[in-house]
Nucleic acid binder design. Structure first.
Lengths: 146, 146
DNA sequence: TGAAATTCCTACTTGGTTACTAGGTTTTGT
DNA sequence: ACAAAACCTAGTAACCAAGTAGGAATTTCA
């Protein structure tokens, strides 16, 4: 029941792009430095976000990445499902029909459904913009102390 | 973000013992047959439940297992934490103090906290007795159809 | 036009975990 | 004594996570 590094990093990358958004393209090595993630690994993860159309890229010198849309358009759930695969706590709840043979008499299906609902409710209720805003607020309050 | 077979099986074993509770000891092969789980694998899982004091056993002929307490005393969360380890979606929320270096500035910690709370709320809010009751109700309604 | 900077693509590696299977030991009722 | 059970430990095959590595393709700029 752990979120993998891939998923966690993907969310952090999106928030990083939102927080440091200047309209320009951000390079992988900048994100990597700020987020303390290996450049090579980050490359792989951001390429998934790119193929899904969540970020936009340009190659070559002065290239980089930026969010494809407003940060408010992306929920944490979207990012996690993309990078983690399904967030269902049990395989039988994936897809439209339950393929499990025991599903009609399953004693435990109900708990997994509740769990699934609760998880989705949280991750689909938080956007990258929400997280970015909080981060900016935190940074500002830190600046005041200096 | 999947519950493992171990965890799922452990919950089913507990519910099975609750549903089929006669006061007598139930043999592993009976549970295995009803639940369609390999006897040997089930043995290993139930031994964890035994060591935790959730079930009680007697060896030898006519031996077996039964719930150590009333089914209402056991939550799904207890069983899962025992067999899965922690249910925290991220490692840094385990334990009393957050050991993560970035935790003071972490952009994403808040989502994981919300997720953790939501998960705990579900699994700690459902007992083995709840599941067993529903199962018995289901069985009775099936009997009526025959 | 050439060099540098950058994304893009693919393969590999290492280590751990899951989900079992297998085989033997101990205990106990009859 | 014997059979039926729980108990214990080791092994194993397959998979996945979390990277590392190296080079190809593309773009900018001097």
């Amino acid at each position: 029941m752990k979120i993998s590094s891939r998923g966690r990093y993907a969310v952090r990358i999106m928030v990083d792009l939102a927080v440091n958004n200047t309209g320009e393209y951000t390079k992988v090595n900048q994100i990597a430095r700020r987020q303390d993630i290996s450049e090579k690994y980050l490359e792989q993860i951001i390429s998934v976000l790119n193929k899904a159309g969540y970020v936009r890229s340009t190659r070559g010198a002065q290239g980089g990445y930026k969010l494809a849309k407003d940060a408010g358009c992306f929920t944490v759930g979207m990012i996690l499902r993309l990078t983690e695969g399904s967030l269902c706590p049990v395989a039988c709840l994936e897809g439209d029909t339950n393929e499990c043979e025991r599903c009609d008499t399953c004693e435990t299906l109900d708990v997994w459904k509740q769990l699934n609902t609760a998880i989705n409710h949280v991750v689909d209720g938080v956007t990258i913009a929400d997280l970015a805003e909080k981060q900016l607020a935190r940074q500002n309050s830190m600046d005041c102390l200096i």
